[in-house]
Design a protein around this nucleic acid. Structure first.
Lengths: 191, 191
DNA sequence: TAGCTTCCCTAATATAATTAGACAAATCCT
DNA sequence: AGGATTTGTCTAATTATATTAGGGAAGCTA
């Protein structure tokens, strides 16, 4: 048989594309194999099992998000940085809904620790330096920001905002404004 | 054949229990049938298909959450109401993780409109009356609260907070404090 | 070029979702 | 009560996915 030139990277990329097209939940090994032009069992030379396929997509998404976040934060601070980071989150989710969903795939502790997840939350922490929030509040603030970004984006993606005429963009801006205000209130050195 | 006394309600309840035990994603028609002591095809007299099974669990969860929310809000206002509603959210998610996940299952527009979802968001809106936030900010605030509650709880459930020693409870309290403060800042009549 | 390793295949098994059709149980009608 | 109808459950069969076993060719390595 002529070799198809599959690699685990190609499998992962294909799965990620598929996720964005049909939804992360619908991604199946069979569909990936089909798209790659090979038979299902051929995949098992490159991935351990179907779960690993999903884990790989999750790791890819986390990397991509962390990279974008790093780029967005460079040279910004305070409110600017907050908005930039938030927009990375929301922008990535809109551009790559399947990967975004993947980024919340439950990883075991070890895999999570080795992922780009920690790097990502490190950046939220960096952002907060501009607000001078002392520990342990800083951890609380990291969580609040993560929760709000993730919550907003996932509700928006799920269509929860479609029932009310107000544009999601406007609510997003308002939410970021409010968070900025709140964080400045929590700051050690109010300006 | 002796009848098993299955009803679509029983099927739904069984699926909900199963979801809480093994995770919403793992709920399958076969598993429900097994637990009910019938063969797979018997389910199809009660539900249209596997998707409908999930939709039913989602609707059940939305109902239960809305009921709890209504009870929690009765007789409370302002900060008390905010905390009570938030705790309903988080408490339900911890008690019934599978149902909670189900409550974010993507419903088509019509089903969503007929669900307890709107009732639930109506309550968030009611809560906000205590803060006197004018429209359209009120809608933004409803979305911010929903996003924060959902985001926090789903990150917590996904284990995202386990990597840092700070107790999730404390971060939760801090987040609610911050939201309360922020909303009072946004209020038409500051006190 | 002999041999090793890698990759892809076919064949087979298990589980899930689903449809068709048989048949008994419950209900409904007189 | 007795027959007709509706309803609930079953068996059998089909399709899709996940996965393992084992064969054989492709391509590297010595």
């Amino acid at each position: 048989m002529a070799r198809a030139g599959i690699t685990s990277e190609r499998v992962t990329r294909t799965a990620a594309e598929l996720a964005d097209e049909i939804g992360f939940d619908q991604v199946t090994g069979s569909a990936v194999a089909r798209r790659l032009g090979v038979k299902d069992p051929s995949l098992y030379a490159h991935i351990r099992n179907a779960r690993e396929l999903k884990v790989r997509v999750a790791l890819l998404a986390l990397e991509e998000m962390a990279d974008r976040a790093a780029a967005a934060l460079a040279g910004r601070s305070g409110r600017d940085a907050l908005v930039a980071l938030a927009d990375v989150y929301r922008g990535y989710a809109k551009e790559h809904p399947g990967r975004y969903a993947a980024s919340h795939f439950e990883l075991d502790a070890e895999t999570a620790a080795g992922s780009a997840g920690p790097r990502h939350s490190e950046m939220t922490r960096a952002l907060l330096r501009g607000y001078d929030v002392p520990e342990p509040d800083q951890t609380d603030a990291v969580r609040l920001l993560g929760a709000t970004f993730h919550g907003f984006v996932s509700l928006e993606l799920a269509g929860s905002f479609r029932h009310t005429p107000r544009a999601a963009d406007d609510s997003w801006a308002w939410a970021l404004d409010t968070l900025d205000l709140a964080l400045r209130n929590r700051s050690r050195k109010p300006e």
